[in-house]
Design a protein around this nucleic acid. Structure first.
Lengths: 190, 190
DNA sequence: CCGAAAGTAGACCGATCTGTATACCCGTGG
DNA sequence: CCACGGGTATACAGATCGGTCTACTTTCGG
C-alpha cells in the first residue's frame, strides 16, 4: 500500500467510525488525508471498496491486538477474562462509540455487500474464540458458556458506546469470572 | 396526527429501520407513503424532526407492548424473564436487523441531536426497569444484577441482528433465569 | 355559504454526492 | 535519457439530496 493510500485509509477509518459511513463523503476523506480524489480512486476504485478495506483493516488490527494479549496469558481462565480487558482498553483508546462492526452493520442493509462478510465473520470468529477459550475449563458446557460470554461481551460494547452505565466492560468481566467459577465447579475436566 | 402524517411516519419508520436513516431520502418516504413532499414538510418540518418522531414512536410502541405483557405476569421472576420473551417476539415480527435505537445511534454522532435523548433515554429506562424488576427477588444485589441482565439483553439483541447464533434471546433468557436462581439463594429477602 | 385545514401535483433551488477527465510534476530504475 | 508509477490540482458530469414554492382540490364545521 502506497503512503497516500495508507493516509487515505487511516482518515477514512477515523471518519467512518466517528460520523458514520453514509455521512462521510469521499471529498472530505481526500481533504482530511491530504490526498487527491484521483489518487483515492486510483488506489481503491470506489467508496464501497474503501468501506470494505476500512472494516478489514479494523478487524485485522483488533485480532492482532487480541492475539498479542492472549499469548501473554498463563492460564485458560486468564485468557477468557483478558478478552474483556483488551476490549476495555480498545474502547478507551479509539472507540467511544461502540463496536465499529455493529455500527457499520446498521448502515449496510444488503447481505450481498462484501462488507457484510467481514462484519459477520468477526462476530462468528469471536464466538468461536470464546467457545475455544472456555473448553479447557468446562468441556461439557463449552458451547453454551461460549455463547453466554459472547452475549455479555457484545452487550458490554453496546452499553459502553451508549453510556448506559459506567464500567460496562468491568461488569461483564466480573460476571464472566463468576460464570467460569460456577461452570468449573459443575463440570470437572475429562 | 392527520392520516397522511400517520402514513408518512409509518413508511419512514419502516424505511429508516430497514435501510438506515441517511440512506433514505424524503422523496422515497413520500412516494412509499403515497404522500406529497409538501404534506410531509407541512406536518414534520424537516427530515431531522421526522427521524426524532420515528424514534419516539418506536420507543412508545415498545414500552406499551412491554407494559402490557408485564402486567399479565404473576410473579417478579416471571416479569424479568418476560422481558426477554417480549423482545424475542418483537424481533421476530418486525426487527430482523436488531435494535432500532442502537442502529440509529450508529448514524447520529452529535450528542446534542434531539434523537440522542430518545435513544439513551430508552436504554436508561431499560436499565432501571431491570433493576426494579429484580429488586423484590434480590434486594441486596439489585443494581449489579440489573446491570448484568441489561448486558445479556443488549447482547442478545445484537447477536440476533447479526445472526451470530440461533436462539440468542432464548440463551439470554436461560442465563437470566440461572442468575435469578443464584441471586435469590444468596440474598434472602428482607 | 364560506373560510380554514388538509391534501395533491409538480416545478424548482442550491448544495452535495460519487465518479471521471485533463494537464502537469517528480523521483527512480533500466 | 527517458518511461513509468505515484502524485497534485482542478474542472466537470450526472444524479440525488433536503427543502421551498405556486396552483388547485376537497372536506367540514360555524
Amino acid at each position: 500500500m502506497t503512503p497516500a493510500a495508507r493516509r487515505a485509509l487511516t482518515a477514512a477509518g477515523r471518519l467512518f467510525y466517528e460520523r458514520g459511513i453514509h455521512a462521510v463523503g469521499v471529498d472530505l476523506i481526500a481533504a482530511e488525508a491530504g490526498v487527491t480524489k484521483k489518487t483515492l480512486y486510483d488506489r481503491f476504485g470506489s467508496k464501497d471498496q474503501l468501506v470494505v478495506e476500512y472494516l478489514a483493516d479494523r478487524d485485522e488490527r483488533w485480532r492482532a491486538r487480541l492475539a498479542e494479549r492472549l499469548d501473554a496469558c498463563a492460564s485458560p481462565r486468564e485468557r477468557v477474562l483478558a478478552v474483556f480487558d483488551v476490549s476495555r482498553a480498545w474502547m478507551d483508546e479509539n472507540s467511544p462509540r461502540g463496536c465499529g462492526m455493529v455500527n457499520a452493520h446498521a448502515e449496510i442493509d444488503d447481505p450481498s455487500h462484501p462488507a457484510y462478510a467481514i462484519i459477520t465473520g468477526q462476530k462468528q470468529w469471536m464466538l468461536t474464540l470464546f467457545t475455544d477459550l472456555v473448553r479447557p475449563l468446562a468441556p461439557g458446557s463449552a458451547e453454551s458458556l461460549g455463547r453466554t460470554l459472547m452475549l455479555l461481551h457484545e452487550g458490554a460494547l453496546v452499553a459502553f458506546g451508549l453510556r448506559v452505565f459506567p464500567g460496562a466492560l468491568e461488569q461483564a468481566r466480573d460476571q464472566a469470572a463468576a460464570l467460569l467459577d460456577g461452570a468449573v465447579d459443575r463440570t470437572p475436566a475429562g
